[in-house]
Design a protein around this nucleic acid. Structure first.
Lengths: 186, 186
DNA sequence: TGACAAAGTGAACATTTGTTTACTATAATG
DNA sequence: CATTATAGTAAACAAATGTTCACTTTGTCA
C-alpha cells in the first residue's frame, strides 16, 4: 500500500525521525515485525530509504518534491520518467553553517524581483563581487543593495530607478551576500 | 564545544539521520558513552534535540536558519534575542503530499517577480480564486498565468504588459495553484 | 593553593533493536 | 480448479541501544 508511505511521512513530519520497527507495528496496524521488515525492504529497493549497518534512514527522494520540466505557453510538462527531485533547503542553502535569513522591507530591489516581505538567504562573508546583492553597512547604516566596484572604490546601487546610488562617505562594510530569495503567496 | 554540534550537523547532512551514541564516540573522539550521554543531555536542554522514549530526534531549531528582523535602509538588524528560526521547506510547502515544483520559463509573470528560471511550488487542486497564479490548460495548451474570474466565466492574464489576456475558446482547466517562488542567484 | 564544578572513563545492565526462520492466510493468475 | 506468489503471524535471538553508577581527570576561579 502506498498509504504506508504516507503514514511514514506523517510520522517523520511530526517526530523528525523514522519510527522503529515496533513503532511501525502500531503505525501500520500489524502484529508481526517481519511484516514490517518486508515492507521496509521494498521501500529500500525503491530508493526511498537506505540502510547502513542496520540503521534505517530516508534518502533525498523521501523528502524531496518532484521537479517537473519547464513550463512555457503551449509546451507540455515533461513526462513522469525524467523527473528530478529537489529539497528546497538543500537547493537554496549551500552552506547552512554560515547562512541566515532576512526579511526584506522596501522596494529598492524590485528590479531584481525582490519585493517587500520576501525572505532572502544570506551567506556570511566579507568579500563580494561587483554585481552581488549584499547586506552591508554603509556609513553605519544597514542596507541590502547591489555592490558595484569601480577599481578599488565601491558603492551601492538599488534595483529601482526611484533611488540614487549610495557612495560611502567613510566606510562600506560587507556582511554577507544574498544567495537566494523566496516568496510565499497569500 | 560547539564544534560537536557542527559534527552532528555534518553527520546528519550526510546520513539523513542522527548517529547512535556509539557512533558519536568516534565522531567526538571519546571513549565513554556516558560522556556522549551528558553532551546530548545539554543539547536537549538547549532545545536542539528532543527525546521520546529513549529515541533521539532533532528539533526544528536543529535544521532551521535564524531569521533576522526586517532590513530597511538605516534600520539595524534585530538583536540575537528575538531570533526566529525557519526551515525553508516547512515555511514554503504546506502540504508536501500534494505539491510539486516547476521550473518557470518565459517572462509573462515578471510583474509579480517571477522570472525565467525561477522555481515555483505548486499545490495540486482544481479550484482556485480569482487572482491566484495557476498552472492551467487553456484550449489544450499549458500555461502558468493569473486566473481572473468574471462571474461564471474565467480567463487568464499575464503580469507583463507585453502579453494580452487569454480567453479560452473551449475549455480552461486548472491543475494547481502557485503557493511560492524561489530563485537562486549566480 | 585549595575547592569545586565540569568533562571524561569504564563497566554493568535491562530494553529494544533489526533480522531470521518456519509456518499460515490471502490474493492473484492462468 | 489447482498453483504460486504475496502479505502477514509468531516466536526466538544476537547485537546494539540508551541509561546508570562509581570513579578519575581536567579546568576554573577565588
Amino acid at each position: 500500500m502506498n498509504d504506508r508511505l504516507a503514514r511514514l511521512k506523517n510520522f517523520y513530519k511530526k517526530h523528525k525521525r523514522l519510527p522503529s520497527y515496533s513503532e511501525m507495528l502500531k503505525l501500520f496496524n500489524l502484529s508481526s515485525k517481519n511484516a514490517v521488515f518486508k515492507i521496509i525492504q521494498k521501500l529500500v529497493e525503491s530508493g526511498l530509504f537506505k540502510k547502513e549497518n542496520n540503521k534505517l534512514a530516508p534518502t533525498s527522494k523521501f523528502f524531496a518534491l518532484p521537479l517537473l520540466g519547464v513550463v512555457k505557453a503551449g509546451f507540455p510538462i515533461l513526462a513522469e520518467e525524467n523527473r528530478d527531485y529537489l529539497t528546497l533547503d538543500e537547493y537554496l542553502i549551500e552552506d547552512p553553517q554560515s547562512s541566515f535569513l532576512l526579511k526584506v522591507s522596501g522596494d529598492s530591489l524590485i528590479g531584481l524581483g525582490i519585493f517587500d516581505g520576501d525572505i532572502v538567504i544570506i551567506e556570511r562573508k566579507r568579500l563580494a563581487t561587483s554585481g552581488d546583492i549584499v547586506l552591508a553597512q554603509i556609513d553605519r547604516e544597514w542596507a541590502l543593495k547591489i555592490l558595484k566596484k569601480d577599481g578599488i572604490k565601491a558603492h551601492l546601487e538599488s534595483a529601482n530607478p526611484k533611488y540614487p546610488p549610495f557612495y560611502p562617505k567613510q566606510e562600506l562594510q560587507i556582511f554577507g551576500v544574498v544567495k537566494a530569495v523566496v516568496r510565499k503567496f497569500n
